[in-house]
Deep mutational scan, measured.
Amino acid sequence: MSIQHFRVALIPFFAAFCLPVFAHPETLVKVKDAEDQLGARVGYIELDLNSGKILESFRPEERFPMMSTFKVLLCGAVLSRVDAGQEQLGRRIHYSQNDLVEYSPVTEKHLTDGMTVRELCSAAITMSDNTAANLLLTTIGGPKELTAFLHNMGDHVTRLDRWEPELNEAIPNDERDTTMPAAMATTLRKLLTGELLTLASRQQLIDWMEADKVAGPLLRSALPAGWFIADKSGAGERGSRGIIAALGPDGKPSRIVVIYTTGSQATMDERNRQIAEIGASLIKHW
């Protein structure tokens, strides 16, 4: 067993022997301040990774656009098919120029040779490549099948209805392509620590998230040296922004954090800054 596999296998073990965790309302004060600064709703939840206990939450059962955070769930569904012998990570998928959609920095470079399922998941999570996500959605049967996968996990809230990039439209009061912070946090925890996926697939999923290259201005910008984070960000229309993450000190994750916002007129930089400040408060009061 590799060191990384050992780390993920012992996530519940280490967490069980940690000192009790206590909620700190100071972080919620910052979440509410972010709402004021952005002029928009902000949803927040913080779960203990081992027990699933909610440590703090704000608007945990209000719907927010998922945006690209759905790509972690998508690759979880792909990995479940791999575990069941219905898919192979090494299978190569070929596609054409007509398949390319807006923001496809990886797939646009491989029109000639195609990409493997493993490479597509890596591109979808680490670079948020939209064509990679659409190609992977095709392998599982489309958005409705991802929703069905989530329902089978016990998540009857999260739903995907459309493809990239239309799913980022974020129309107010439109339930399409949305989740709730509580539902997303619980589902992410199941994917990373539950028995739904094999140990190898859980490790692969967290490795992809740990290698995320496009979430630097968010929670990662607030992390002290030595902290662990595996995350996936999302951005959408109407001032929408979000991030889902597993993080913790001492090089291992111990909490799940989900943050979503929508309806702001603020710039992307300002949305990023507010999420980073929430992260800084979380870490300060850990």
Rank of each mutant, 00 (worst) to 15 (best):
H24Q: 08
V29M: 14
V29P: 04
A34H: 04
G39M: 14
A40S: 12
R41V: 14
G43C: 03
I45V: 15
N50H: 13
N50Q: 07
S51W: 04
I54K: 15
E56F: 04
F58V: 15
R59A: 05
P60N: 13
E62W: 07
M67S: 10
S68P: 00
K71V: 00
L73K: 01
L74R: 01
G76C: 11
V78Y: 03
V78N: 03
R81K: 07
Q86V: 14
Q86P: 14
R92Q: 11
H94A: 08
H94Q: 11
D99V: 06
L100T: 12
V101Q: 06
E102K: 08
Y103L: 05
Y103E: 04
T112I: 14
G114M: 04
T116V: 14
E119G: 13
C121P: 02
C121M: 08
S122Y: 13
A123C: 09
A123L: 04
A124E: 01
S128W: 01
D129H: 01
N130P: 02
T131A: 06
N134I: 03
N134H: 02
T138H: 15
G141E: 14
K144M: 06
E145D: 10
E145Y: 08
L146Q: 05
L146N: 00
T147R: 07
A148T: 09
F149R: 14
L150W: 12
D155E: 04
H156C: 09
V157M: 08
R159W: 14
L160K: 01
W163D: 09
E166N: 15
N168C: 13
A170R: 09
T179L: 00
A182R: 10
A182F: 13
A183H: 14
R189Y: 06
K190L: 15
K190H: 15
L192H: 04
T193D: 10
T193L: 12
A200L: 13
S201K: 10
E210Q: 15
E210W: 09
D212I: 03
V214L: 14
A215Y: 04
P217A: 13
L219E: 02
R220E: 03
A222Q: 07
A222V: 06
A222H: 07
L223Y: 03
P224M: 04
A225F: 08
A225W: 12
F228G: 05
A230C: 09
A230Q: 02
A230M: 06
A230S: 12
K232T: 01
G234Q: 00
A235L: 11
A235Y: 03
G239W: 00
S240W: 02
I243C: 10
I244F: 04
I244K: 02
V258H: 00
V258L: 07
I259D: 00
T261F: 12
A266F: 11
D269P: 13
Q274N: 13
E277V: 06
I278Q: 00
G279D: 02
G279L: 05
G279Y: 03
G279M: 09
G279H: 03
A280W: 15
I283A: 13
